[in-house]
Every structure is written in C-alpha cells, then in structure tokens.
Amino acid sequence: MPHLLIFARHPELGRVKTRLAATVGAEGALAVYKELLAHTRAVVAPLPVHKTVWLAEAPTSPRQAAEWPGYEPLLQPAGDLGRKMQVAFEHAFAQHAGQVLIIGTDCPGLTTAHLTEAFEALHTHDVVLGPAADGGYYLLGMRQLYPQLFQGKNWSTATVRAETLADIRNLNLRLHQLPELQDIDTSADLNAWQISSGRTLVPGLRVV
C-alpha cells in the first residue's frame, strides 16, 4: 500500500502562518491557512492510499480530533524538520509501505495529478521531488529510506532543495522532478501565487 504523509497544524488563531500574519494579521493568516488545509484535503481525497497526518500539536478538543477523518493521526516528534520527516518515513516503511510521499499544507497549486504522477514515478525512480519556488520543496517521495536526505540541511532556507539534490546525486539515485510550485509562507509568496495563477485565495483579504 502506498502511503501519503501530511505535516499539518490545527487551524488556531495566532498559531499558524506567523510570518504571513506579520502583514495580514492573525485572522487573515488563519483564513489563508484554512483555505490551504481545505485545498490539501480536496486534492488528496481521491487517492487510494494510506493517509497519515502528522500534527504539530495534540488535539485539545473533540472538534480538533475530528479534523482529519480517515487519516491515521500521529504527533510530530521532537527535533528539527529533518528529524521529524525521517521519523515519519521510518514509520511508514515499518508498516511495509511500497512508496511514500510527504507533503505539507502550504501549496495551493498542488493537484491530485501531481500526487498521482509522483506515486507512479516511484515505480521506476528512487526519489521524487516537488521543487518549491522558495528554494525548498513541497513534496518528497521515496521507495526506501535514505537518511542522508534529512541530515545536514539548513531547514526553511533557500538552500534546502540544492542540498537535497546534491545528496541525491551523491547517492546515485534515480530522480523524478515535478513542476515547480509556490509555497505560501509570506505575503510576498501569496502575492506571487495570486498574480501567477489569476486566483484569490481569500476574497477580500488585503495583502501588503
């Protein structure tokens, strides 16, 4: 069974999209995050795969506990982002997953077709990468664990993609890359995506 892993947070005021909130306010950032969550769930829904949501915090109410029906809910472990992702992949492979993808909830351009392409590519490639416009990546997939991909990275910086690609080359792995997409972390990201897509994520939201 293929596995899809999602890293997410509960949509709570003041606890999501803090860099975006610096310019659009906490309520605006929460509205954006809720739209991104809804989009992520929608594009994932048609996939016949095992779905695990790795949450940054434990649910504090029945409403939060019911936010991800049909998903295996787990808590992200301690450590940096690389450590968290490595543990998530280890858990999936321990359940005998044949192909494993990990995504976040920041990419409004992600489609079901991208995810389907990634799973299909893992039949003939060792690694799949979805490059993000900020120099990171919005998707990573593999057929077995390669711990090097999660180590020695300056996470949340513009060098992550280049560092990961260097590891893939050094390991002589067969790589399939998806189209570059825009993650939404700042108002500049949101502006860039809305201009390039011709869409508005949250109608009426003033983006500085």
Rank of each mutant, 00 (worst) to 15 (best):
E90W: 00
E35W: 07
A56N: 11
F89G: 02
R143M: 07
A78I: 12
V100W: 02
T124P: 03
Y146I: 11
G104M: 01
D80A: 04
G104C: 04
L81E: 13
A92D: 07
R41I: 07
P46T: 02
A92M: 08
P77W: 00
F93A: 09
A29N: 03
D134I: 08
H39Q: 09
Q64M: 09
A56C: 07
H123I: 05
P69F: 09
Q148G: 15
Q76M: 12
E117N: 14
I102Q: 08
E117Q: 15
A118L: 05
E72A: 13
L110Q: 12
H123W: 11
G136I: 04
P69W: 09
A31T: 03
D134W: 02
R143T: 15
G136L: 04
P69V: 09
G109R: 06
A31W: 03
Y71M: 10
R63A: 15
L110N: 07
A38P: 11
L37H: 12
P147L: 09
P62N: 05
L75P: 06
D106R: 02
V87A: 14
L81C: 10
Q151C: 14
Y138E: 03
Y146K: 05
G141D: 07
A133G: 12
L149T: 01
D134R: 12
V44G: 06
Q76N: 04
Y71D: 08
A78P: 10
D80V: 04
Y137K: 05
L110H: 06
M142W: 02
L140I: 14
D80R: 01
V49T: 11
L115T: 01
E67V: 04
G98C: 07
M142A: 12
Q76H: 05
K153P: 07
V32H: 00
A94N: 12
C107Y: 00
D106F: 03
G152T: 06
V87T: 13
G25H: 04
T105S: 13
A94W: 04
A88T: 05
L36Q: 09
G136S: 12
L36M: 13
G109F: 03
E57H: 15
W54V: 08
L101V: 04
R41T: 06
